[in-house]
Design a protein around this nucleic acid. Structure first.
Lengths: 343, 343
DNA sequence: ACGGGCTGCCAATACCTATTATCACACCGA
DNA sequence: TCGGTGTGATAATAGGTATTGGCAGCCCGT
């Protein structure tokens, strides 16, 4: 708000109220230890309201050494998962009066984004989809950091229980009678995918079902990756009767490959994704998946970050592991004895 | 960067280089009018580099009356369209050294978000998906604003050519022989949808094809909205042979309704969306649509905003209308004489 | 020798708020 | 009367940078 060409400052309010600028600051910051006469307080508040005074948060930040802004760094929006995380984060941050600086970073320029955030005296950073271990060691020094979906002994973490997700996936497919099952996922990627894979494979093995290496397909964590990998699987003479994918994008790609190959789901192949993104219900049949509370991940990450910021120096808050659960839709069903994969 | 508990400031650099703080500032800001001895310049730069000096952008902003930050306000991420816009905006902004403050605003709290952005001395705001005319008249005073996908005589605008999109849609369906065509879209919504509808209806009429009111279906601009509206259309004894939807979400909902009703696309009904979001290629058959350059909208909006910011006071840059084009995929085909809609 | 212009740098200050230390004052009990 | 106490507000300053105006010193021409 301005009056003419002039900005409304605390000093302006002070002059009109006949008090000093610090008094205005004292009253406006609602500091409990502020001892001001009720009459003065109400007068100042009234005038501030009248001329539309609002503290300049840049100046505030400068003196308080706080920007009241958080950074959120994600690899990109190709995966709706990150959209959801960002959305959840923004809601909580806005409620707490914090701004969200949004950064979309290829693996390359994460460091530059971090530098830029640092220059803005950012109060904390949330990183999703980028393995913290791949960053230069000092890149995160002196920053409040919360990681999403990756374990760390250095920073607090909010994650869906990826190991459990893999286990649930395996149990579900086993319970449907599948014994020849495949996994599609990226090779050296973010921890979440690795845990999903590990939980899946381990649970299968514990049930006496081994997964031969030709059924462990490496693919980009994208729709295209899933498509190609699934096509390769379907081309096998004894193709699997069920496939678990590292995430829903991969599964949707696989879904499409089945459609293109005329392979009916779940009659000939059961297909299971992970994340529970909105697109899952668009395809026919709808994609079965393991639901991860994506928005909640973002929301909790912010809460964790805020706690860390508020009591600076205290021990960082503990990490959180959020439960996941099976969402059975149309792409998983009982194994079909007559299908191509059963020998 | 810090040294011990101490922050690295320009004064620190100055002390070590044996010059004054303003000289450091002069050199670092690469001001062309800066007359400094080359020897001094290189010495200062070297020391700044060594001790890792980086200007505090809060302090910078305070004195330059510029935050080097932009706000992007969108109604939400339900529609991937806005995701794309945000992504395009971020890329360009980051390249120019600007931060993007991201705000997800229900219709209610747009004003509060704007206030918060103002307090942060934001340099400009991009608004998408929220009709500027629905805001309180003074809410945008003294702000640099660029609107997306809505015309305005007050602010520059970047928009896909929605009127043209409607025309193209009509021409496409007409050329396929459809004469009984429907439109699904929200009633009182953002301008883009209204223009699409208008362009569509007008072009039909110009070709001598009228659209009876029962074929103009009102629905939320969501998947669910499209689903319900399409189900109603299909329930009609003489249902349309082709349907154009206000956006792709609606069309995807309609697509799903067809699947559920066992109506083959495009054999019995042709379906056409608008926007060209990624999900379009997930469904079977893939959704035909009118492509809008969504990322480009965000990118151009930022460029427009930057130009407006850089030469403050100059006349606002002209608005831009970006071309759209037909993307023919699997849901549009020639009218089938034997189908239910043709009488 | 002297003045003018140019070069290279610096002092001072603005930007706006929050915090700390301090001060004026009234009141009260001894 | 005086020292002590609590109240209500202020002066001074920090915080880090950019900008304005100006001060020296030097070169050069006359």
């Amino acid at each position: 708000m301005r009056i003419g060409k002039h900005r409304v400052t605390a000093a302006e309010v002070a002059k009109r109220a006949g008090v000093s600028q610090p008094t205005v600051s004292l009253i406006l910051s609602r500091n409990p230890k502020a001892r001001v006469a009720p009459e003065t307080r109400s007068r100042v508040l009234k005038i501030a309201e009248e001329i539309g005074y609002r503290p300049n948060r840049l100046a505030q930040g400068l003196v308080r050494r706080r920007s009241f802004a958080l950074g959120v760094i994600v690899p990109g929006f190709d995966n709706p998962f990150y959209v959801s995380v960002l959305s959840g984060a923004e809601r909580v941050a806005a409620e707490a009066g914090y701004a969200v600086l949004f950064c979309e970073a290829g693996k390359v320029d994460v460091v530059q984004h971090l530098e830029a955030l640092r220059d803005r005296q950012i109060d904390g950073v949330i990183i999703a989809g980028i393995a913290a271990t791949t960053l230069p060691p000092r890149a995160l020094d002196d920053l409040n950091v919360v990681l999403i979906n990756q374990p760390s002994d250095r920073f607090p973490t909010v994650a869906g229980d990826s190991l459990k997700a893999g286990e649930i996936a395996a149990e579900h497919l086993l319970s449907l009678g599948h014994r020849r099952v495949a996994f599609i996922g990226p090779a050296n990627s973010i921890p979440a995918y690795r845990f999903r894979e590990r939980g899946f494979v381990q649970t299968l093995r514990a049930a006496g079902v081994s997964m031969p290496s030709e059924l462990l397909r490496r693919a980009d964590a994208t729709i295209a990756g899933g498509y190609t990998a699934m096509r390769a699987l379907l081309a096998m003479p004894d193709h699997p009767t069920a496939v678990f994918c590292a995430n829903d994008l991969v599964a949707l790609g696989a879904h499409k490959a089945c459609g293109a190959a005329g392979v009916q789901l779940p009659r000939y192949v059961s297909l299971l994704g992970c994340d529970d993104i909105e697109m899952d219900t668009l395809v026919t049949p709808e994609l079965s998946t393991i639901a991860v509370p994506t928005r909640e991940l973002g929301a909790r990450a912010v809460r964790l970050l805020l706690r860390q910021i508020e009591h600076e120096g205290a021990k960082p808050p503990a990490s959180q592991l959020l439960p996941v659960k099976l969402v059975q839709r149309g792409t998983t069903g009982p194994v079909n004895k007559r299908n191509g994969g059963a020998r």
